[in-house]
Nucleic acid binder design. Structure first.
Lengths: 114, 114
DNA sequence: GAGTTACTTAAGTAGCCGCTTAAGTGTCTT
DNA sequence: AAGACACTTAAGCGGCTACTTAAGTAACTC
């Protein structure tokens, strides 16, 4: 498990903003243009562009321009990477708890050794 | 699904820093004191305290002081909350993809209607 | 009670973040 | 060719972040 990953930094950083999470939520229901992403938001277009840039650099999103319209898509791989990091830590913690509880019940069954 | 959650903001923000992810990784192997957390790090103790504060405010970690030692523990609930948000978006996206592919194979079987 | 240990608080600083307005740049539409 | 549209770039600004050093405070240890 690699904690020192600029890619994970960027992914979690991107996820830390409610505006960007909103954009991701919208994108999870299907690809969208920049203006479609901007429509429900109360911020300027350039601000949206900057959020989009953060999302692209984190790898959470991919976009392509056709004519004058840029279409943005979710990139589930980066989403998985972030999810997996968390899941890994939680799994480790819970495995440790399980071992501890197993140990406790052993003591209960056999009586404290020595 | 709630994107406008300061708690999620703080959790992902906390996860966005490699030092804090390192601390969480250490804690997933068991509780630790502040100095134990600080030992492998090349930063001052006050800096560690500030990271710890970020982790506590995000709910990812809980700590308790006994005598002069503060012991820090992972809080799997907050970890799950962050994990679940990501999983939710990914699930939605993948369900959409599945429907789309099912639709494609319908077309292939039945021929394009109209 | 004097020193050591384990934090803790305070204050200051450099750099990044999210936003804005203003001014482009290509691409359709008429 | 003129205008509208969908971004895109640039520049600036206030607030937050991640440190630092210096100076506490409270709990052990001798």
């Amino acid at each position: 498990m690699l904690n020192d990953s600029p890619q994970l930094d960027r992914a979690f950083q991107a996820l830390a903003d409610p505006v960007r999470r909103g954009m991701l939520a919208r994108l999870s229901r299907g690809a969208a243009s920049v203006s479609e992403l901007a429509a429900p938001l109360d911020i300027s277009l350039p601000a949206v562009m900057q959020h989009l840039k953060a999302l692209e650099q984190s790898g959470l999103v991919r976009s392509e321009k056709k004519g004058r319209v840029r279409t943005v898509q979710l990139e589930p791989k980066a989403l998985s990477a972030a999810e997996a990091w968390i899941a890994g830590r939680r799994a480790e913690w819970e495995a440790r708890l399980d071992r501890f509880e197993a140990h406790l019940s052993t003591l209960k069954r056999d009586g404290e050794p020595q």
